[in-house]
């Protein structure tokens, strides 16, 4: 027996976890359970990111997705968690239809994934893991360390831009979104009694 490839082993572990809990999200009827499963699925995805060598993105996944997004979701659950809304049943026809469509989607996507020979794996990959936090951080500030010109190390390859502008846009976007969300979700002023009478 060949020795176990631990990378593949952990991939299988995390992949199965992610898939299983993603299915769990679909199947679960309680919103809170859905949230729990989603967390596990997302955390497993973070594990997949680590396996793919994207440690910074993985950490971000945990920090923002799992930490931030889901706390927000749970927040919403708490605010709307009153008896009848926790679970709402859907008709069997809907389920059937959705499954068919999803099946078609999978049938489309999975062959596509295997259609490129290079993507099928099987060859041992380079072993050294490089930290990605610094290149990503510098890249967000406008310099792509990984795209340096071999001839002139002080400059980028022609046409290789970086992500300073998207970064700024996303920052502004986040700010606007937070303000907008706060505005949307604010407590509505109750109508005064006099208005109700009239």
């Amino acid at each position: 027996m060949d020795s176990i490839n631990w990378h593949s082993f952990f991939f299988l572990l995390f992949g199965l976890l992610a898939s299983a809990f993603a299915v769990g999200v679909v199947v679960a009827s309680s919103v809170v359970r859905m949230a729990l499963y989603l967390i596990v699925a997302l955390a497993a995805t973070a594990g997949l990111f680590f396996l793919a060598g994207a440690d910074f993105v993985g950490a971000m996944q945990i920090m923002i997705y799992v930490g931030g997004t889901l706390v927000l979701l749970v927040f919403g659950v708490m605010l709307t968690a009153q008896g009848p809304f926790v679970s709402m049943k859907t008709g069997g026809g809907d389920w059937l239809l959705a499954s068919l469509v999803a099946g078609a989607l999978l049938a489309l996507l999975i062959p596509v994934a295997f259609s490129v020979p290079d993507w099928r794996g099987g060859e041992p990959a380079p072993a050294v893991m490089e930290p990605t936090a610094t290149p990503i951080g510098v890249g967000l500030l406008g310099v792509r360390v990984d795209k340096l010109d071999a001839d002139r190390p002080e400059s980028l390859k022609p046409g290789m831009s970086s992500y300073l502008l998207p970064f700024e846009i996303v920052s502004m976007h986040l700010l606007v979104v937070l303000v907008g969300a706060a505005y949307l979700a604010r407590t509505k002023r109750r109508r005064s009694p006099s208005q109700i009478e009239s």
């Binding site: 809907d94 239809l97 959705a98 469509v101 999803a102 078609a104 989607l105 489309l108």
Partner: peptide, 17 residues
């Protein structure tokens, strides 16, 4: 909303096919 989602997905799949 849910039907729209279905439309989108079916449309995507159909387009690809």
């Amino acid at each position: 909303l849910r039907q729209y989602v279905m439309f989108i997905v079916v449309g995507t799949v159909a387009l690809t096919v």
